[in-house]
Amino acid sequence: MNTIGEPWQRHFPTATSGAHLFPEFEMRAKAVSGEVFRVPDATAARETLIRLVDDVGAKKAVVVESPLQEAAGITEALRSRGVTVYTEPTDIAAHAETSDIGISGVEFGIAETGSVFQDGGAIATRLVTILPPLHVVFLPSANIVPGITEAFDIISQSFDRGYVGFITGPSRTADIERVLTIGVHGPSRFAIIAVDETPKGGEA
């Protein structure tokens, strides 16, 4: 948590939120061309990511770590696949623009809209989420709130300064003849890997 004043988890409405909302979240995210992969554990998460990497033939990746990624050993898996991985902010700044894939963690999802909430206070996070053509995020599948209102209940108690926001599907435009076109300035593909298992020794 780079910019949010106090841990947002403390304000997560556990009574009304959770994995039971995942199907709605998944449906909404897919409706806006998001790709959603719900997996049981770290191993499956790693395999899913590798499939995505193979799918786009990624050679170069920029990664901002998150507990789920660390638990799944994402960075090592990428490297052993022959992908060049950058994790340092200065390296990310130099290579995000030419990378095939950006990987980061997000805080929670919103069932009403299929959005994910991310703390983008760290410059590296914003670079990996916006510059490469494919953006993959890791999300604990239990971290789903019902709607925008509930999301703002959390945000209003934890957002003091910095750069936060929702990401809802890939970048899009309909500015020419109102024809929906995916992938303008931001990524043309947006994939969510949602993991059921909570990583050991820490919060997601």
């Binding site: 760290a122 003091d160 936060v164 970048s171």
Partner: peptide, 15 residues
């Protein structure tokens, strides 16, 4: 749209 692709909130200068 239920939500646009990006909602961004910025409070104070960021790096």
């Amino acid at each position: 749209q239920l939500m646009t692709s990006y909602l961004t909130m910025i409070a104070g200068p960021t790096p």
